[in-house]
Nucleic acid binder design. Sequence first.
DNA 1: TCTGGGGTCCTAGGACCC
DNA 2: TCTGGGGTCCTAGGACCC
Length: 428
Amino acid sequence: MYGLIDCNNFFVSCERVFDPRLRGVPVLVLTNNDGCVCALSNEAKALGLRRGDPYYQIKELCDRHGVRVLSGNHRLYGDLSSRVMATIASIAGDIEIFSVDECFIDFDRWTADDAVEAGREIVRRVRRDTGIPTSLGIGPTRTLAKVAARFAKKYPAYRCVCAIDNETRRRRALELTPAGDVWGIGRKLVRRLAAYGITRAIDLADRSREDIGKILNVCGMRTWEELNGIPCIDAETIDGADGPPQKQICCTRSFAANITDRKQLADAISLFATIITRRMRERHAAAAGLSVFIHTNSHRPDLPQYCNSAYRPLPEPTNDTMLIAAAAQEALQAIFRDGYGYKRAGIVISDLCDDRRMQPSLFTDGADRERRRRLMAAVDRINASSLSHDNVHIASYMPLESCVRCEHRSPDYSTRLTDIIQVSNHGL
DNA sequence: TCTGGGGTCCTAGGACCC
DNA sequence: TCTGGGGTCCTAGGACCC
């Protein structure tokens, strides 16, 4: 049996941990640049708001109903996520972290009843120790555990834990689940399946293997098997930093206003190089090359459109901010054209290797490489201190706040000393 | 005025090999 | 008139996830 723990309305729940005034009222968390709705509280969902709604289209409705609107504070969410995962792991042992707010638990050696019992304890402890509400689904495959987690979240009678542990419950659950709510069935597939009369999860599971082979590809076939209780989604148990190495790292942003100036865009690219190299060093990744892309605003067909990207190989794999920034500038200069307003840009790195096992070049200076490595380590140490986030950076760097909008950002309650919550004793 | 960011996997088609 | 068979690698595009 697999368990899936899912944090309820995760980003909203994180904000509510530190600001109790947000409890019981509609709350939205926006995407970067305050562009779209990224997460909502149940009260906001009840007003008809949906994930993905552009904020400018719903602003008036939000004002009318007193919806509390927040910019995303991902440093806070990341910190709470690691606390939630640590709490779960302290009870369940090996867990497989699937996303910022979800993880799988191996319940293989448990009976269903014991798993439910242990599950209730996990949910209670996560709530007590971190303040985050969660739901737990249990099933014979990961896909069925996901289905169960939906029920655990939706119906209070389950008291946060739902198990699909026999054939009757499996069929009943799939009858009540729309095909589009199944893990792996997205918008496009919903439409294709509907053409074959498949609208509920049970319709999908009950088709013959031959039928499914004609309608869907191998990914769809795996979903079909999982719905029928045959586990076939890989068990890549992620164990701390020793999980499978990442294949790609990118850093891309939309800008609050179109950028027309070459120097301004270059400074934004330097910022992206700073962000992406810090992430690479955290993950022991080094890049053998990088791509830079720039894009005008595709939502404005009335303006001249241009997009392009360029690749630059590096003499040897590196995660040095200055070397990556320099290569990124070269790539940018190759594609920049005057006369356009650029709305989006980014750096994408697909050829990654482990910086502890990389092949150095015969023609680069080993002593210089070691000096640069120590310099980057020192910069990371200073910037990681909770008093001075990102105080040390390369000179051609544009502060994030000057190109991206985030007008309703909450404090970094748990990761920055100056933002720590204050408890007043006035009146005591 | 105003529409996110970071990933994964699969497939088809083209280039190339013997 | 008439032109094989088996394979790999790469890339772009499309689908999905949160």
